[in-house]
Structure formats: structure tokens, C-alpha cells
Amino acid sequence: MTDDPKTLVSTDWLARHLKDPDLRLIDASWYLPDAGRDPKSEYDAAHIPGARFFDIDEISDQRSALPHMAPPPEKFISRMRAMGIGDGHQVVVYDGMGLFSAARVWWLFRLMGKTDVAVLNGGLPKWLSEGHPIEDMPPVMRDRHITVSLQNHLVVDVTQVAHASKLADHEILDARSPGRFSGEEPDPRPGLRAGHIPNSKNVYYKTLLNENGTMKTKAELREVFDAAGVDLKKPVITTCGSGVTAAIIFLALERLGVDRKALYDGSWSEWGKYDDLKVATG
């Protein structure tokens, strides 16, 4: 893998740059409720030296009834300033699964116009397996000025997705498991219908990853999209259960140089809730 400080960096790269004064590390661990894991207490017990904890549920738009929607720019600015993350920093995001929720926070930075941000390939599990250092002390954080420039084209709402679904002029890619996509498995969130957005295609996020939680090579990623019948010349909308694993597809597309792409932030938590929106199964 070629290290790219704008998309994906290796544990070797991070080990070399760990003490760089302009590096800012973020632990963006987040788990589905049924995982039985507490990301903040895991962070408190052990994290990569210097890492700050990014609470995906708190740094969100809490005016919305939907889970962890993208925060307003003002809230993002205030939280990042307090965490000592600002202009001129190289940000590296990781999580406790390998590559899961880190991509969501990477996408949030992109949404806010910050491009010097990468995901740690393989995350904390790979870092630990290689014997790299960890600590349990929170870092000393000093306020840092940060400017943002909202990139509205990187996010779409339910109206835009409904339009794209009806016209079939976009590739709508769903990162959920095949069982949830087909409607054979019930959704883990209560009150949501089973199935998928009409004219969407299933690109299960795990098919983009290796068993050790690292992202597949660019050639292998292309094979996954080809196997799912995806035309990458069309504009792409990524979706999932609540906008977390949709960002893994988004990151894979960025690795492949696909420019026209956006993430459906409401995802199935929104689409599956409203009876006036059509649902496909099978």
C-alpha cells in the first residue's frame, strides 16, 4: 500500500511520524449498540500516544431525531478547537475495529473542507499486534484556530436520494450486510422496515476490507465494485444504516479517484422509517 496522508496511512507511517509536532491523532471508535463495547472507556484504558477521543454521537447535530447526523460547522469548530486540532495539522483517525467508524470522521473532516486527514489502515488492532506503544493518559490540549469551508456537494438528503432512486441516474451503494439489504434480516434499529432503496446496489463494507481490518488494494477495490455491477462513471451516493459504514465506501471511492460522490447522512435510519418512501426487497 502507498501511504497517502489525504486518505490512508499505514501503521509504519504513523510510527515514523508519531512525534511530529503538527500531527494530530483521533480515536474515533464507535460501535453498534449490540456490540456491547464502550469506546470511551476503552480509549481511557489504552490509546495511541497523543490521541484525542472523538465522540461521534456527541459531535453531531443533536437537533435531529436521526442518529449522529453531521454537526453544524460551528459545533465542529468549537469541538476541534477544544481538542487542539486546527489549521496546519495533519490529522490521522483510527478506531478499535480496524477500519470501521474512523472513515466516518475522515468524511466529516472532508465535509468541513479539511483535506489533510487520513485513516490509519488496520486501526488500533494492527497497531497493537505490531507492538507499537499505547498510553492511558489524556493528551495536553491547547486551543488551536480552525477554519472550515462546508462542502455541501459531499452530502445528500432524503429528497435528493429519492430523486436519484427514481431517475436511476446515480449509483446508490448500500454498505449494509446482504441480509439487511435484501430484507431477509430485520434491521437492528426498532421501527424500521426491512429492505433497501429502490435502484440501489449492495456493496457490503466488509468486502472492501481484508480480514485484518485493512483496506484492500486499489485493484482489488475495483474488482469489488465491478462484481457488484457498479458503473463508476456515474455519480455515486453511499448509504448504510446510519451514515457510518457508508463512509468506508466513500473512502474506497476516494482511493480510486472517483470525484462525483456524496454520502446520504440519514441513510436507512431515515429511509426505513417513512412509509411514503418505497422499499425494495430481494
Rank of each mutant, 00 (worst) to 15 (best):
G84S: 10
P73G: 07
W106S: 12
F100I: 07
I85G: 06
P71H: 04
M97K: 15
F76A: 11
Q90S: 05
V92M: 07
G88V: 00
F76Q: 12
V93L: 10
H68L: 09
P67D: 10
P73A: 09
R63T: 13
A82W: 05
S78A: 11
L66E: 06
P71R: 06
V93H: 13
L99W: 02
A65W: 03
Y94D: 04
R104G: 08
A82H: 08
G84C: 08
A70P: 01
G96A: 14
G84Y: 02
A103Y: 00
L99Y: 02
G96H: 05
D95P: 00
K75W: 13
H89G: 04
P72Y: 11
I77E: 15
D87K: 02
A82L: 11
M80Y: 00
D95L: 03
I77M: 14
P71M: 07
G84I: 02
H89L: 00
S78E: 15
D95C: 01
I77Y: 11
W106V: 10
V105T: 13
H89Y: 05
F100A: 10
V92S: 05
G84M: 06
M69W: 02
S78W: 00
M83G: 11
H68I: 09
M83I: 09
G96D: 11
K75S: 08
P73S: 13
F76M: 12
A82Y: 02
M97A: 15
V92E: 09
V92H: 04
S78Y: 01
P71F: 05
W106E: 07
S64Y: 14
S64K: 14
G96C: 03
A102T: 05
K75F: 15
E74Y: 04
I85D: 05
G98M: 06
H89A: 14
A65H: 10
